[in-house]
Structures are given as C-alpha cells and as structure tokens.
Amino acid sequence: MLAGSDWACTSDEDLARGAASGSQDAYSELVRRHSKKLLNLAWRMTGSQEAALDAVQEAWLSGWKGIRSFRGEAEFYSWMRRILVNGINNEFRKRSRRAALVSLDRSMDSEESGEPLQVEDEGADPQDIVGRAETAREIGQAVVRLPDMYRVVFLLRETELMSYSEIADVLGIAEGTVKSRLNMARRMLRETLSEEVGSARFA
C-alpha cells in the first residue's frame, strides 16, 4: 500500500478498496475527507453538536463493518450519507416524538443561545446582515422543531440538494410522499416564520 502522506492522490474508491482489504489507515483518510459534510447534515437533522458527533461516529463504525458491500456504483459520500441518514432515522423512530422534541429543544437552548448562528459576510449593509442572521437563526430553530419525517425530507432536498428520487431511495418511501412531505415542511416553515415576524412587528 501507499505511504501515509500519499493518500491525497488516492481516489475514494481506491481508499474504500484498501479499507475493505483491512487497511485502517485508508479508512481514516476517508473519515478525514467526508466527516465535515456528514457532521453538518447530522447537526441539521438532530439540532445538537453532541448528537451529530455521536451519529457520525456510529455511521463510520457501521461503514467499517459493511465496507466490503461498497461496490463503487455510487459515490462514497452518498453511500456514507445513506448509512448516516438511516442511523439517525432509526434513532428518531426509537425515541418517542415527545422525548425527541424535549431533548432537541434543550440542546438548541444550551448550544445556540451561547453561540448564536451566523451567516456569511457578503459585504452587504450591516443592518441587512443582522436581518439575515435573524432569519437564518429563526429558520434553523424552526427546522429543528419540524416533525422528524418532514425535517429529514426538507434538509435532504434543501441543504444536500438531492433529487426527489434520491431522497425516495434513501428513505425507502415513494416519490409522491417526498413531494407532499416537502410541501408540508415548507408550508409549516412559512407559517412559523410569518407568525414570528408578525409577533415581532406588533410587540
């Protein structure tokens, strides 16, 4: 196999083959390459950094156990994303809806009140940046408060930019269901936001 410093020139597929034949170093390189995107997705799905780290770690361990079943038909990231989304979905299913909401609210409060969400500075008017930061923060919280099945579809579409058929495939649901859940999620978000904007205006 290659020396540790040469991994940069190795494709994901070759690394996955190396990992399948027992190379933990090759697998660590895959972890290094793809964790950031997976963590962002997990964080958006769970609303908590701690839960995201646990979910992504679990996904990588499942990936190691099943690395021989990766045939290279899909991109490695898509393969891992499927494992991650399924893992988080199973967690959602295990916990009762009520418990899920309580823990997510708590994690949002403890993490995001101390360190407010930010938007990228595009050199716009400061007032505008504050306005957009507020909206982004509100959207972030509103997304976390969506029921699990709507939130997952919404995030896979809007932040992962997956097609309806890819989402349907990963979640094991019909494309029509993807469409209606996405529509429902957007409607709920719009209502939440217009309520919040309204109450802020009349306060």
């Binding site: 697998y27 660590s28 972890v31 290094r32 964790s35 950031k36 963590l39 962002n40 964080w43 958006r44 950094q49 780290l53 992504v56 770690q57 990588w60 361990l61 190691w64 360190e115 969400l117 930010q118 938007v119 990228e120 957009r132 909206t135 982004a136 923060r137 959207i139 972030g140 509103a142 997304v143 919404f154 995030l155 579409r157 809007e158 932040t159 999620a185 957007r186 978000l189 719009r190 936001l193």
Partner: peptide, 22 residues
C-alpha cells in the same frame, strides 16, 4: 426557507478528534 436554511452557518468541527474516536 430553503435558501435561509442553506445560509445557517454550521459549527466548526474538530475532524481530527472524530478521526481519533473512529
């Protein structure tokens, strides 16, 4: 809502710590 969700900045992750955990 989608474009606002994409603007939400994700936290800084310590990927090396995760690599060690994995």
């Amino acid at each position: 809502p989608g474009s606002a969700a994409r603007q939400v900045q994700a936290p800084e992750w310590n990927v090396e710590a995760l690599v060690a955990r994995v």
